[in-house]
């Protein structure tokens, strides 16, 4: 439960930190840290416009996507505090649940009958689906490393295994989770949320027609997803054995750092060419495979 609540709190300031970082890096004054939340509040106050073409799918999809993220958050632990729902193989459920949300957002884009949104849907479908193997190989590496198959137990045992090389996994794992989070949330270098031309958009073009309440849900889902991956990264790099107040502090520091990393990446890096994206994403799987090779060496199965 602690994990769930902390993610909720972190999600409040996460997008603001990204924004602030970007505005500082580009020398602008920029909006305040809670501007994204205010945006959501504005959207909640507004009415909605629906396209005549759309039907029920378009209307329920944002809710499904948000709920899938919320339920996925229930699976994440915070240090030694077990997640609300924890069972063997819960990360499989985690991945497939997020895919369910994606599924609905993709068909909602197709529901509008617009070729822009169809284009975005097609891209999003491809990118978020070929990132799947990277996540599973990474989790397989952790399962092999700790001997367990549940988020809560894996992270709890991560630093107790007595293996000195745990550091390697923290680094590779953190790197991969950052990349996966960027792809899942459609950020640079795969997609640029601030682009101004529909032809170059991926995620933004998918949600062009959503307005008001539904748009607010979509944004809330994105923020929660960021904080959720931040919590995964936190669990990887902070040992579960520390004092609880220190850990809570560390949790927010890790989340803030994660947001700053995203902000800096987005400030100084250009977006990939669209047709280079699949290769870029599949590279993540090879990075995960390298982690897997390392574990084979460590357990003396290879060499």
């Amino acid at each position: 439960m602690a994990g769930f609540l902390l993610i909720l709190v972190a999600a409040l300031f996460f997008p603001g930190v990204i924004l602030r970082t970007k505005s500082i890096a580009s020398g602008r004054k920029g909006p305040g840290i809670f501007q994204p939340l205010k945006d959501i509040a504005v959207m909640l106050r507004k009415g909605s416009v629906f396209s005549d073409t759309t039907g029920i799918i378009f209307r329920i999809a944002p809710s499904v996507a948000l709920v899938s993220v919320i339920v996925a958050m229930l699976l994440l632990p915070f240090a030694q505090y077990k997640a609300l729902i924890s069972f063997e193989g819960d990360f499989i459920f985690f991945a497939y649940l997020l895919a369910l949300g994606k599924f609905f957002m993709i068909i909602a884009a197709l529901d509008t009958g617009s070729s822009f949104q169809g284009m975005g849907a097609s891209r999003e479908a491809l990118y978020s689906m070929i990132v799947e193997p990277a996540f599973f190989v990474l989790m397989a590496t952790f399962a092999m490393f700790t001997g367990y198959t549940s988020f809560s137990v894996i992270f709890n045992h991560f630093y107790i295994t007595g293996n000195d090389y745990v550091f390697i996994y923290s680094v590779i794992g953190a790197y991969l989770f950052i990349q996966i989070a960027m792809i899942e949330n459609s950020r640079l270098p795969v997609d640029d949320p601030k682009t101004h031309l529909e032809l170059t958009m991926v995620h933004e073009v998918m949600i062009l027609d959503h307005s008001g309440f539904d748009k607010a849900l979509i944004h809330a889902g994105t923020y929660l997803k960021f904080a959720m991956y931040g919590s995964l990264i936190y669990n990887l790099i902070v040992p579960a054995g520390w004092n609880t107040p220190v850990k809570v502090l560390m949790f927010f520091i890790v989340q803030a750092l994660f947001a700053v990393v995203i902000g800096i990446t987005e400030s100084f890096r250009a977006r990939n060419k669209m047709n280079k994206n699949p290769k870029y994403i599949l590279t993540l799987t090879s990075v995960a495979l390298i982690a897997f090779m390392v574990i084979l060496i460590l357990t003396e199965k290879l060499i």
């Binding site: 909640l44 416009v49 629906f50 008001g212 849900l217």
Partner: peptide, 16 residues
């Protein structure tokens, strides 16, 4: 959602 939308103006129009 349905409660929320019932108290706001909802319009229909062509796809953007």
């Amino acid at each position: 959602r349905s409660f929320h939308l019932s108290r706001r103006i909802t319009e229909t129009g062509p796809t953007w």
